[in-house]
Design a protein around this nucleic acid. Structure first.
Lengths: 222, 222
DNA sequence: CGACGAGTTGACGAAACTCAAGAGTCGTGG
DNA sequence: CCACGACTCTTGAGTTTCGTCAACTCGTCG
């Protein structure tokens, strides 16, 4: 297997916890599956018969609402995995996954994982850690949605992209503004306006690049 | 230990998965701890040195925002547990817990649980199931917040309280309207107005009792 | 060059929050 | 038994925020 792919897999908390040999065994001989922008990886309600680790590109987890609007639950990038919990518990997916860029995923059979987990309780911890992390980000999202207005959400989102300890920063938005807006639960127009409001706090935007003069000032606004 | 308490503990997915004897061992000789309305069980940032299962009463998980607003993340009642994930992972609480009524919790040492989990990978599954369930409710919440307006959220909340298969129902709100409003991410005033709007769909409210003439009509509104 | 998509900006209306006042309920104490 | 205050909930009025619709800019790509 390609070394770069392997390195990405190992960045995943689940695979990081596996001993090298066992990890290779779990993956099996299968190579990564490419996907194209717009492709649906699975739908809500599908049986979860394996989980997938993103190698390149971006995948969004969404809930479709009856009136056609998407609620973006999470955006997944390289090294992160999709649907650990339903796989292990033998359930169905409770969100849909759709590619928002071209990329690749490594698919991994449920049965192999379950077998591996049986053999090593450290893996169970790793799964828990992974689920726990997702829990945390969801809690953050719920808090944001309930307690912050659009501008504050954008400010927090930007602040979250700044590396710890930095005073000022040049941030590259990880994906299209359209998607950022969705992830933050607002329309693209509102996102644009929120950025405009943040200009007087020393935030400037050019294309995909956002520069923040003073991160503290941004944080103070939340 | 009191039989009723024990029965409540066994309703918890984690404890339901434990063999009887092991469960008793994990709990130890300790009895439940009473708490009073308004009491803080733990604060965000506290070290998580054990988890707690609610025996009676209600506990809310909240995030305080800098400007004093609470975001209610979840409301926990008898049989449900607090803070499984951070305990197992040896972390800190990422939400605060505050009692919204008098009640009792059974505290359980982290070390005992970790030991038990090491001995039996089924427990890890149980924890995962528990985390997964919480994940799902959070995903639901995120979807609701992003895609539904206040009235629709109230409608969905009420519909969720109706037992499956019932056509009309008499629902007792599980806690104060104030709290319901917070849980749904709106102000008490907005909650009240939303209920008023639902009146023309056959929803009547008296005190804590809500009656729904036709559940389908309610669901159709979402 | 022209078509297209992403992003921005403006105008407008709907939805929700805030502030404020009033109704109803409950417990306490006289 | 009643009066009072505390509390919850409701209702009204005014304001802000946000989404929608639409026009327009700008860069990309055929």
């Amino acid at each position: 297997m390609d070394q770069a792919i392997w390195a990405t897999l190992r960045r995943n908390p689940f695979f990081g916890a596996l001993p090298e040999e066992l990890a290779r065994q779990v993956v099996g001989g299968r190579g990564p599956t490419p996907f194209a922008k717009g492709q649906v990886l699975f739908l809500r309600g599908d049986r979860a018969d394996g989980f997938q680790i993103v190698i390149d590109g971006w995948v969004k987890l969404v809930r479709q609402t009856p009136d056609g609007n998407d609620a973006v639950i999470a955006l997944i990038s390289a090294g992160e995995s999709l649907a650990e919990a339903p796989v292990l518990l033998g359930g169905v997916h409770n969100v849909s996954a759709e590619a928002v860029s071209d990329g690749r995923v490594q698919r991994i059979d449920a049965s192999r994982i379950i077998e591996a987990v049986k053999g090593d309780e450290k893996l169970a911890y790793a799964m828990l850690a992974s689920a726990s992390m997702r829990l945390r980000t969801l809690v953050d999202q719920v808090e944001d949605l309930k307690a912050l207005d659009n501008t504050q959400r954008v400010a927090r989102f930007l602040a979250g992209l700044v590396k710890r300890g930095e005073r000022s920063a040049r941030i590259e938005l990880p994906y299209e503004k359209n998607l950022v807006a969705g992830r933050l639960g607002m329309t693209p127009e509102s996102f644009s306006r929120a950025l405009a409001k943040l200009r007087k706090l020393g935030v400037t935007v050019d294309r995909q690049i956002v520069t923040v003069d003073n991160v503290e000032r941004l944080r103070g606004e939340i």
